[in-house]
């Protein structure tokens, strides 16, 4: 039984935030994986008692601040995504890696689409379909790096 410390969760979230804040530009901005959301989902599946919708909301708020967008846009998108992750959390941890990955991909799409709608409502111009490329990069990162490196669990 491995004890998951709260400190570790916060440290990893801050690290993800720094990666997200890295000055991506041009195509890099479209291809940038959503590091913070990936970290949140990772912990939501493993430690739902520490990492819940509230933490996701606050992380979203931090991103709103950093990106200078309207207060609460990213926060709302993250909260909705976190809801779908937490509701099925008990089933998700019994899934195989591939099943989990496909569900996480769905969650990333939900997040991206919610944000897309919110931004369009706020009067932004759609950046085009490239915008959804970030989901694909994110899921590749999730499947080939995050799960492989940071998940030392034995299968049940």
């Amino acid at each position: 039984m491995q004890v998951i410390k709260r400190r570790m969760i916060y440290a990893s979230l801050l690290m993800a935030l720094v990666l997200q804040l890295f000055p991506w530009s041009g195509w890099g901005l479209y291809l940038r994986p959503d590091f913070v959301l990936l970290a949140l989902l990772f912990w939501m599946l493993r430690a739902p008692q520490h990492c819940n919708i509230g933490l996701a909301w606050f992380a979203g708020l931090a991103i709103d601040l950093a990106s200078g967008s309207l207060f609460g846009q990213n926060a709302l998108a993250y909260a909705i995504t976190a809801f779908f992750a937490v509701v099925y959390q008990r089933r998700l941890i019994l899934f195989t890696d591939l099943q989990q990955t496909s569900y996480v991909f769905l969650l990333l799409l939900i997040n991206q689409f919610t944000l897309f709608l919110l931004k369009l409502f706020a009067g932004a111009e759609s950046p085009g379909y490239y915008y959804f490329l970030s989901c694909i990069i994110s899921i590749l990162l999730w499947h080939f790096v995050i799960v492989k490196l940071f998940s030392p669990r034995g299968r049940h």
Partner: peptide, 20 residues
């Protein structure tokens, strides 16, 4: 989870509206 979602969603909608 649903109660939390409603709470945070309302909060963020309020924030969005007041910021805009």
């Amino acid at each position: 989870a649903f109660a939390r979602l409603i709470m945070f969603a309302t909060l963020s909608l309020l924030l969005i509206a007041s910021d805009a």
